[in-house]
């Protein structure tokens, strides 16, 4: 369950921001999670409740924005959506690509607080 460790680190960052803004409560947190980040949104949600307990972020809404994966094909000089799970095969020429342009995101993107 590395989702717990990841969420602990995320809430650290959230609370640092909240203190910097002298916030009393965090109401909403938005994360951007890439489709190929290897992290389970359900695991994150579970960890969120545990990790925020007793903090300024307790009871806050957690929104997880899924970032679709895209890869680049050098032969076609074009981006394409990766829809075969972790297999990035160019729809035009069928070549496999190792050049991911998005889909590995693991980011905190928005905090709403009062």
């Amino acid at each position: 369950m590395h989702e717990v460790g990841i969420m602990e680190s995320a809430i650290d960052a959230v609370l640092r921001q909240a203190r910097a803004h002298s916030a009393r409560r965090v109401h909403r947190i938005v994360l951007r999670i890439g489709a190929l980040a290897g992290v389970e949104p359900d695991g994150l949600r579970f960890a969120f409740d545990v990790v925020t307990r007793g903090t300024l972020a307790a009871g806050a809404a957690l929104e997880i924005e899924a970032v679709p994966a895209r890869a680049y094909c050098a032969a076609c000089d074009a981006d394409f959506p990766v829809d075969g799970g972790f297999i990035a095969r160019c729809p035009t020429c069928s070549a496999l690509s190792a050049d991911l342009r998005s889909g590995r995101e693991l980011e905190l993107s928005r905090i709403e607080m009062t």
Partner: peptide, 16 residues
């Protein structure tokens, strides 16, 4: 003024 929204791009594993 009360609800402050901060947009950012912080890696979740920033420390690591």
């Amino acid at each position: 003024a009360q609800v402050r929204a901060v947009d950012l791009r912080v890696p979740l594993l920033e420390k690591n």
